[in-house]
C-alpha cells in the first residue's frame, strides 16, 4: 500500500524531475541492463528535440546491437548494411543538404567492415555527424574480437587474450579520422556517470550545431561497455572500462574547429 502511494506521488506532474523525450519511442530497449547504447540513444534524441530538429532529421542505424535503433529513435530512420551507414548518410545529406543526418555505429561496424566508408566519408568532408559506440567487442554476435579489442583482452575469438603478433593492434580509428582535413570536430566521450552523460550530450549538441554550419564531418566516439560480451556485471564492466579502456582510448576532444588538440 505504502509503495503505491510513493509511486503515485512520483508520477505527480509537480514532482517530475525528468521526462523521457518524445523522440524516444515507448518500445522497451533491447539492450542488456547497464549497456551504454540506451543512454547514448536518449542523449541524441534529447539533443534533436532541444534543437527542434525532429522534422529535419534522418538517422542511419548500423548492424550490431543497435541494429534496431530505428525502433527506439522516433525520427525518420534508415537501416544500413553492416558498415555502410556513412555511404547512406553521404547520399542522404548530398541529396537533401538542409537536413540533419547522423549515423549511429558500433566499433565492428565502423572500424572493421565499414572502415573504407568511414574514412572516405570523413575525407570527403561530408557534413554529417557520426556517433561511434566503441565497446571493444562485437556485442551482437556474442562477444567476438573487434578491431578495438584491447591487447590481451579475452573475447570468444581471442579466448586466450588478444595476441598482438597474431591478431594485430587495437585500431584507434578516431585519432585516424581526426587526421583527415574533412573532419571538423572529433571527440571521445563516455556515458557511465551522470557527469560524463552531460559532457557527451554537450559534444553531440555541438556536433549537430556544426553540421548546420556545413563545416565538415563531426565525429563523436562514445567509449562504452558491453557487460554481456565482457562477461561482467554492469558495475564490474564500468570499473573495467575506466581502468582498461580509458587509458588506451583517453576521453576528451581530439580535434576542435578543424585543429588537432595538442596533448589531448
Amino acid at each position: 500500500m505504502a509503495e503505491t502511494t510513493i509511486k503515485s506521488e512520483i508520477i505527480n506532474p509537480e514532482n517530475l524531475v525528468y521526462k523521457k523525450t518524445d523522440l524516444m519511442t515507448d518500445k522497451v530497449l533491447s539492450y542488456c541492463p547497464g549497456c551504454g547504447h540506451g543512454t547514448t540513444h536518449r542523449i541524441i534524441m534529447e539533443v534533436i528535440e532541444e534543437m527542434g530538429l525532429m522534422e529535419d532529421t534522418i538517422g542511419i542505424a548500423p548492424v550490431g546491437c543497435s541494429v534496431l535503433a530505428y525502433e527506439f529513435m522516433n525520427v525518420d530512420m534508415q537501416q544500413a548494411a553492416h558498415g555502410r551507414a556513412p555511404a547512406l548518410a553521404t547520399a542522404v545529406k548530398r541529396l537533401m543538404p538542409h537536413k540533419t543526418v547522423f549515423t549511429y555505429q558500433g566499433d565492428g561496424d565502423l572500424a572493421a567492415i565499414g572502415t573504407a566508408e568511414t574514412i572516405h566519408a570523413a575525407n570527403r568532408g561530408e557534413n554529417i555527424t557520426i556517433v561511434f559506440i566503441n565497446n571493444g567487442i562485437y556485442g551482437m554476435t556474442g562477444g567476438q574480437m573487434a578491431p578495438t579489442t584491447l591487447p590481451g583482452m579475452k573475447s570468444s575469438t581471442s579466448p586466450y587474450g588478444r595476441d598482438l603478433g597474431m591478431m594485430g593492434h587495437p585500431l584507434k580509428i578516431t585519432e585516424l579520422v581526426a587526421q583527415l582535413p574533412g573532419t571538423h570536430y572529433v571527440t571521445r566521450q563516455a556515458v557511465h556517470t551522470p557527469a560524463n552523460v552531460r559532457k557527451t550530450k554537450k559534444a553531440i549538441r555541438k556536433a549537430f550545431e556544426l553540421q548546420k554550419q556545413n563545416v565538415g564531418m563531426s565525429f563523436v566516439e562514445v567509449v562504452s561497455n558491453c557487460n554481456s560480451g565482457w562477461k561482467m556485471t554492469p558495475v564490474q564492466a564500468n570499473h573495467w572500462m575506466v581502468e582498461n579502456m580509458f587509458p588506451y582510448y583517453p576521453l576528451g576532444d581530439i580535434k576542435v574547429d578543424g585543429e588537432i588538440v595538442e596533448n589531448n
Partner: peptide, 26 residues
C-alpha cells in the same frame, strides 16, 4: 543533379540505398 565518385562499388550501391530511401531518383 548530384554526381559523386564513390570509394568503391560497395559504397556506391549503398549511396543508392540512402538516396532511394529518401524518395530520390538515384
Amino acid at each position: 543533379m548530384v554526381v559523386l565518385q564513390a570509394e568503391s562499388e560497395v559504397a556506391s550501391i549503398n549511396m543508392l540505398y540512402g538516396g532511394a530511401g529518401c524518395g530520390k531518383k538515384v
